[in-house]
Structure formats: structure tokens, C-alpha cells
Design a protein around this nucleic acid. Structure first.
Lengths: 230, 230
DNA sequence: CGTGTCCTTGAGTGTCTTCAACGATAGTGG
DNA sequence: CCACTATCGTTGAAGACACTCAAGGACACG
């Protein structure tokens, strides 16, 4: 079908987003919200009515475990669609919080179902996008399962590189979340994340300074993570 | 919406399955296949045309990593629907293999799209089911991330108990996969799985003998896994 | 009944975590 | 604009935990 899975993902997203925005302007239900760092988009257990297109910035979703500690389930970047997982039960199973200044476009989910006549591909495209998310999660499971910390961190960074859709290896990328958040997500401690980053940097696979990094040796990095780009 | 997420899942599945089977008999595309232990349902990279309802038995899906080792991504039990993740790219991203004697009902995916007139809820229900799978995967991520091995194994067993939909704690459950498969899935070694099981058994949280087990102390088990039933 | 796989248990090693300290960074109020 | 303070990030040392390697018993299959 499509040769490059990432360019196809990009096109799929763009198609869905343009359909959704078109839909919402017709029904007058769309709304852009500006978020500051730390603002909540929705809370766990809120009733599910909307899905959100992330126009700029970044968002994390997390659940709160009994003991009160949060467990991060996903990071979202520009052009991602957030809120899917509420479809099934009618309530969001996670909270969504802005990692930095961001903006989201809100769409009422019911409107999507109504307008299948006008956009016959929309529902099918949403199915495809969700199918992809399942697939991506399974890759992540694969990663979190095996391997040591350094591979997890390498894979995490490489994934951000992939998602950014930049062609050049030398583009500087941003790490909007804290080391603690990365550790939380990957199931390792903050300290281990830091040590892994230091090691990757010392071995010249990446270059990193604070929240900015870039991939120095893409081949070695891919080799290290054994073809698991998350 | 629905109070009990599991009974709603059960109803959702049943509704989808009955719609699918109805659809396939109309188009004459349905087919039941009997599988022996070790038989493949589909292979990684096969073209995606069908999804499969698991009528009886159990199936594992896995990817083959560069080095040739397999990584298990999911286990499926009776009434599960297998093959979703192929929707997006047009090829299955995983292989599916029977863990024991099983039978599956095969349905051509294109037929589902065609018959949205007759079954207007079908596509939406499929969206819901996929939404749930995303949610479940995120729970699993949460599990694999943190916690120690004993919690992973406890959670894995508890999940099988939940999925079986039995009301009684004392029902004997079957573990169709090997310890090695469990370890592969949970990201720990076979030996650690075995040691964890022994420990859980010694502490009277479960009772286990070979491939049969039951939950002895449900409350303690839930407490151990900190409300993470995968 | 034999053979291969599965399961369990043990001992030693390596990795990650924990606890602790300190420097760097960023956000806040004067 | 600068000083202040809280959080973030890094590094070290000691301990806990899971892994590796190894061996032997249990089980299932032909």
C-alpha cells in the first residue's frame, strides 16, 4: 500500500484533521483553547464529549493510581489527536495536561458520527488511526518489556525524532517533558534516565543539553535499539 | 453510561460478533477454521483481508525482531476479535498462532464497510472496541512500566480471571501459554515467572498446579497490584 | 516407554533502585 | 532587573532485585 509508514501517517492525520475542522465549523462546535504549562485539557472520569487536535505544544496523559501517584500513559505532540480512549466507556480513562504552552482544537464527538454523509472516509480513517495507535502501543509494550534502560531511553528519543517528521538528523529537537516524566513513562527512575542519557551522549549517539537534543549517529542508535523505534 | 465495564465489554463483543456473522453469511464470505496447537492464523506481513473471531481456544500474536527472536504482543481468548491492527497499513504487523486446539471464524473486512446500512451500529461498535483495546494496552503499559516481577505476574493472572467473566473466585482457570510465553509477554525471564508464581502460591494469594490455577485471596491480590488489573 | 520440552530451584553476577548531596535552571516577587 | 526559592538534573555509594548459567525433575507427545 503505502511505502513510507510515516508519511502515510502524516497524510492520514492531515486528512482527518481537515475533515474534522470542516465538520466542526459547519456545526459551529469547534473551539480553540490556549493552554499554559500545567493546564488540564480533561480529567480522568470526566464525561467524554470531545476529542482534541493538538495544534501546537505537547500534552501528557496519565492515570492516578490508588496511592495518588500518577502514571503517564502517553505523550502527544503537534497534530496528534487526544481523547480517543474515552469513546468506549463514555468517560475519559486518563487526565490530559499541557507540558508547555499549547493550543488545542476541540470537537464534539457526536458531530463526527452525524456527518458521515459529507465525509464518508472520516470514520474509516479514524478506524485506521486507532488501528495504528494499537499497533504503536504494542511496539511500546515490546520495548518496555525487554531491554535495559539505555535502550529504552534511546528508543524514546528516537521516537521523538521519528514523530517530528524532520528529514535531517542534525535538526535540534525539543524534549518538552522532565526526566522524571520520561522515567515514569518508561518505568525507570529519574536517575537512571539521567545516567542513560549521559552514557548515550558520551558514546556520541546523541548530543544533549538540557531540554534540547539531536541524533548524532542514527545508525548506531537504531542498532542499539534493535529495530524498535517504538 | 454502563456501570460494569466488563459486562458492557461482553455485550459489545457479542453485538459485534452477531452482526459480523450475520454480515458474513449474507455475503457468503464467512468460514470456520479448526486449528491445532502451533498453527498460524496469519503471518506478519501477510496482506490484511480478514479479521477473525476466536470461537474457542486461545491465540498469541507476536512480532519477530531483527535477531529472529519473537516478542509476544497479545494473548486472545474466546470471543476476542483478532487482526484489527492490520487495518491501517493493509498488512498484519504481527503473526497469530494457536496456543492450543482452537477454532476461528474468518470475516472479510471489506464486507463490514459495505454493510453499514444494514448494521449502522457496527462501525461505531468497532470503534468502541478498538478504543477499549487502546485503553487496555495503556493499562498494560502502566503495569510493565513500574512494579516488580511478582506484581506483573499477579496482574497477569488476575487479568485472565477478569476476562473469563466468571463470578466465583473459586473457579479453576486455565493458563494456555507456557511460562516462557508469560515471561516474554511481561518482559521478565521464565525463571522469574516461576519464582513469582511459587511465591504467590506460598503466600496463599493463588493456588496453582501446572496450567490450572485459581484465585484464593482476591482482596490481597488486588492490593498487591495496587488496583492495576491490566 | 523414550525423548523433548516445560517447570522449578540454586548460586553468582550485573543492573537498577534507593538514599543522599549538590549544582543548574526557571519561575516569582520585590 | 535581580535575588530567592523550588524544582530539575546530575552524580556517587550501598543495597536489592532480576538475570544468567546450570542442573534435575515433571509432564506431554509420539
Amino acid at each position: 500500500m503505502m511505502q513510507n509508514p510515516n508519511s502515510s501517517l502524516y497524510a492520514l492525520r492531515k486528512s482527518i484533521i481537515s475533515n474534522l475542522i470542516d465538520t466542526s465549523t459547519m456545526t459551529n462546535s469547534g473551539k480553540i483553547t490556549k493552554l499554559k504549562k500545567g493546564d488540564l485539557v480533561f480529567k480522568e472520569c470526566d464525561e467524554f464529549h470531545y476529542i482534541y487536535i493538538l495544534l501546537s505544544g505537547s500534552i501528557k496523559t496519565f492515570t492516578t493510581i490508588n496511592s495518588g501517584t500518577e502514571k503517564i500513559t502517553c505523550f502527544y505532540y503537534q497534530d496528534d489527536i487526544v481523547g480517543f480512549s474515552g469513546i468506549d466507556t463514555g468517560r475519559y480513562p486518563v487526565s490530559a495536561k499541557a507540558l508547555e504552552a499549547s493550543s488545542v482544537f476541540r470537537i464534539r464527538f457526536n458531530d463526527i458520527e452525524k456527518l458521515t454523509d459529507k465525509h464518508p472516509n472520516l470514520q474509516n480513517n479514524m478506524l485506521r488511526l486507532m488501528s495504528r495507535q494499537i499497533h504503536e502501543n504494542q511496539n511500546l509494550l515490546s520495548l518496555l518489556g525487554k531491554t535495559q534502560s539505555e535502550k529504552k531511553v534511546a528508543s524514546f528519543l528516537f521516537n521523538i525524532y521519528i514523530q517530528s517528521c524532520h528529514s535531517s538528523t542534525f535538526t535540534t529537537l525539543k524534549l518538552p517533558m522532565s526526566r522524571r516524566d520520561i522515567g515514569n513513562y518508561l518505568g525507570i527512575t529519574e536517575e537512571t534516565v539521567s545516567r542513560s542519557i549521559t552514557k548515550l551522549s558520551q558514546n556520541n549517539l546523541i548530543a544533549i543539553s538540557g531540554k534540547k537534543f539531536n541524533i548524532v549517529d542514527k545508525m548506531k542508535l537504531v542498532e542499539l535499539i534493535d529495530g524498535h523505534p517504538v
